Amino acid sequence: MIKEIIVVEGKDDTTAIRRAVEAETIETGGSAINREIYGKIELAQQRRGVIIFTDPDHAGERLRKLISERIPGCKHAFLTQEEASYKGDIGVENASPDLIRKALANVRTEQERSEAEIQWEDLIAAGLIVHPQAAQRRLEMGKWLGIGYANGKQFHKRCQMFQITKIEFNAALAQFDKRGS
């Protein structure tokens, strides 16, 4: 059983999580999260810890950000849009049990950091911003680093928040470049 409580968007997500692992969830009911749900998540974070596992779409990322800003120290599990897609629908509920287990095995923890290792210039040099294929490159690098897809500014924030080291970053970049993308 997973110790932390997993925060998901809806009932179908809970069903998918429970097909993959033994865990308890808190359902936000979508992106319109209310004070009562925030209270449950705060209590869960204090008592057992929280893993935020939202859909890899705009609404899911917005919800992840809202919860993270209000409740510090959460862990994060990520799926790619490709892993969470079925017939044009994107959501955790569409991922296979194996992909859900993989995402939960690779959770990342938010941490405060006084000085970030990955600088804006590192993203430019890696072609993750100000590059014709920057969005595709961030998508692939997000997979390698386990931090999901984000725009340039959010990608930089995630590198800081999850304390991605230059060693991790360069190893992922080498793997990415080796594939010829």
Results as ranks from 00 to 15, higher is better:
110 E>H: 07
32 A>S: 15
22 E>Y: 03
151 N>H: 07
49 G>D: 06
16 A>Q: 09
20 A>Y: 03
40 K>H: 10
15 T>A: 14
39 G>V: 05
153 K>E: 15
160 Q>R: 15
2 I>K: 08
126 A>L: 10
113 R>Q: 15
1 M>Q: 07
9 E>H: 02
142 G>L: 08
124 I>P: 00
33 I>D: 07
127 G>K: 12
16 A>T: 03
125 A>W: 06
49 G>L: 09
89 D>R: 13
125 A>Q: 15
164 I>A: 10
103 A>N: 08
80 T>D: 09
180 G>D: 11
104 L>P: 02
56 P>I: 13
4 E>Y: 03
32 A>M: 09
131 H>C: 06
127 G>W: 12
71 I>Q: 03
7 V>G: 00
150 A>Y: 10
78 F>R: 02
41 I>N: 01
95 A>E: 07
137 R>C: 00
34 N>R: 09
179 R>F: 06
135 A>Y: 03
30 G>W: 08
129 I>G: 02
149 Y>W: 14
30 G>I: 02
91 G>P: 00
28 T>C: 05
59 A>I: 03
46 Q>A: 11
79 L>M: 12
150 A>H: 07
47 R>M: 11
181 S>V: 10
46 Q>Y: 02
56 P>H: 14
149 Y>N: 10
81 Q>E: 15
175 Q>Y: 01
108 R>Y: 04
81 Q>H: 05
30 G>V: 03
120 W>C: 05
9 E>C: 01
68 S>K: 05
77 A>G: 11
123 L>F: 10
176 F>Q: 14
123 L>P: 01
176 F>I: 08
110 E>T: 04
39 G>H: 05
178 K>E: 15
17 I>Y: 00
130 V>W: 05
118 I>A: 11
73 G>S: 09
23 A>N: 04
59 A>Q: 13
127 G>L: 11
87 K>N: 12
11 K>R: 15
134 A>Y: 06
127 G>Y: 11
156 H>M: 15
85 S>H: 01
13 D>K: 03
103 A>Q: 06
133 Q>W: 01
88 G>Y: 08
115 E>G: 02
30 G>E: 09
21 V>N: 02
90 I>F: 03
82 E>C: 00
146 G>L: 10
76 H>T: 01
43 L>C: 01
97 P>G: 04
178 K>R: 14
51 I>F: 04
165 T>L: 08
37 I>H: 03
113 R>W: 09
11 K>Q: 13
91 G>C: 07
108 R>H: 08
71 I>R: 01
57 D>K: 04
21 V>S: 04
58 H>V: 14
124 I>A: 13
77 A>C: 10
78 F>T: 00
30 G>T: 02
91 G>K: 08
21 V>W: 01
101 R>N: 05
98 D>F: 06
91 G>T: 05
5 I>P: 00
155 F>H: 11
114 S>G: 08
122 D>N: 15
63 L>V: 01
32 A>Q: 14
74 C>G: 05
133 Q>H: 13
68 S>H: 05
38 Y>E: 12
